[in-house]
Simulated scan of single mutants.
Amino acid sequence: MEHPYLRIVAELRRRIAEGELKPGDRVPSTRQLTQDWGVAMATATKALTTLRQEGLVRAVQGVGTVVADAMQTPRRTSDAELSRERIVRVAIEIADSEGLASVSMRRVATELGTATMSLYRHIPGKDELVLMMTDEVFTDEPLPAEPPAGMREQLEYLCRLQWRIFRRHPWLARSLSLTRPQLLRNGLPHTEWSLRALRGLAPKAKLYAYLTLLNFVRGIAVNLEGEAEAERDTGLTPDEWMQTQEPLLGLFLDGGQYPEFAELLRHDIDFELDEVFEFGLQRLLDGLTDLLVPPKR
């Protein structure tokens, strides 16, 4: 009996060969394949991995898996070319385009065109790989040698820089832990920057202020990967998805039990995570400014 993943491969291969899916077109995501074919996530992943090995599809950051150009050939990496840095960077590319769940030692090896066991000579396993990925992305935007003047300006600069990093790597927020923090060599300068800006607070207040700011940025960013996955799977933007929910909302609101919510919806306010981030950041900085500089009596 033919394995289900081979049937998926055959169907997608046919659609590519017959031009139904053209170079650059998105192919169904692993989640979509599980829904359409009634298979497990591992089966869907294996199907897409097979197509990548054949050079028919490729991963694109922020988009997902797309049909590859006909002239493109899969990359090949010799053992001599393989390094920890290269493995980590390829893993980051996969996570950026398809989410952290798509990262595995086998998948990274496939992208590099090498044997899975070759990776273990450089990195012990997936847990260590994710930790290295998390540390590496903090090098994307180095902190300046000289911070801006003023506590508020320094914290605002740091939070905006971190938000840009989270934006670039939507999986990052879920890989960081507040209660069991990882020791990240490239993340420590961020910690030092924040604690230096909060000089003047008692040690406990300083720690809590630092964690509150960090978790605010991380908390907003937790939504990024889920939204990217939803948009890849459904093809709908957040606004388009909300439009599909209007009939259901009407059932809840027509009875008049939630007048404030109904009034808010009538204003048709655009919802943007960047604006939520900016609004919350300014309110937090207002509070920390008052904490560090008590009002005059």
Rank of each mutant, 00 (worst) to 15 (best):
P259N: 07
A202T: 11
L198N: 01
D233F: 07
R232P: 00
S175C: 08
L224N: 00
I87Q: 00
L12G: 05
W37D: 04
E141R: 15
E18V: 09
L119M: 08
Y208A: 11
E225H: 07
A59M: 10
F261R: 14
E141P: 05
G235N: 01
D69E: 13
T289M: 06
P142H: 02
A228M: 06
L249T: 06
G219E: 13
L33H: 03
E2L: 11
R167I: 07
A80F: 09
H169V: 02
V130S: 07
A40N: 12
R89Y: 07
T65F: 07
V66A: 01
L188W: 13
P203V: 02
D69G: 10
R86A: 01
T49H: 10
R86S: 07
D127S: 13
P238G: 06
E98P: 03
R121A: 14
T49L: 13
F138G: 02
V88G: 03
G287M: 09
H122L: 09
L143T: 04
V60P: 00
P203M: 08
T237R: 09
G62C: 05
Q282F: 01
V63L: 06
E275D: 15
A145G: 14
H190D: 03
L100V: 12
I220H: 06
E136Q: 12
M132W: 11
M151S: 05
P189W: 04
T30K: 12
D270E: 15
A40S: 15
E275H: 15
E260S: 15
L248G: 14
V60R: 01
Y5S: 10
A47F: 08
R86C: 00
M1W: 15
A95G: 06
F216H: 09
L265V: 04
I87T: 01
T65A: 07
F261E: 14
Y208W: 13
R167G: 08
L176P: 04
L264G: 14
L211S: 10
T289H: 12
H169P: 06
G38S: 10
S175G: 10
P181N: 02
E240P: 04
T179N: 00
W171M: 00
Y208P: 02
R84T: 15
R106Y: 09
M71A: 12
Q32D: 09
W37N: 04
E93T: 04
L56Y: 01
L158Q: 08
T65D: 10
L213F: 06
E153S: 10
T34Y: 06
Q32T: 09
L291W: 03
L201Q: 03
V60C: 03
D96Y: 01
T50F: 07
R106W: 10
N186E: 05
V57L: 00
L213A: 03
M71I: 07
I220W: 05
R196F: 09
E146I: 11
L214P: 00
Y210M: 12
E136L: 12
L158A: 11
T116W: 08
F271D: 15
E141Q: 14
G250A: 12
S104H: 05
A42F: 12
V88Y: 01
L143M: 07
L251D: 15
L253D: 13
Y120V: 06
V66S: 00
L119V: 06
S194H: 02
E11T: 04
A145V: 12
R14Q: 14
P142R: 02
L48I: 11
D127V: 11
A262E: 08
T45S: 15
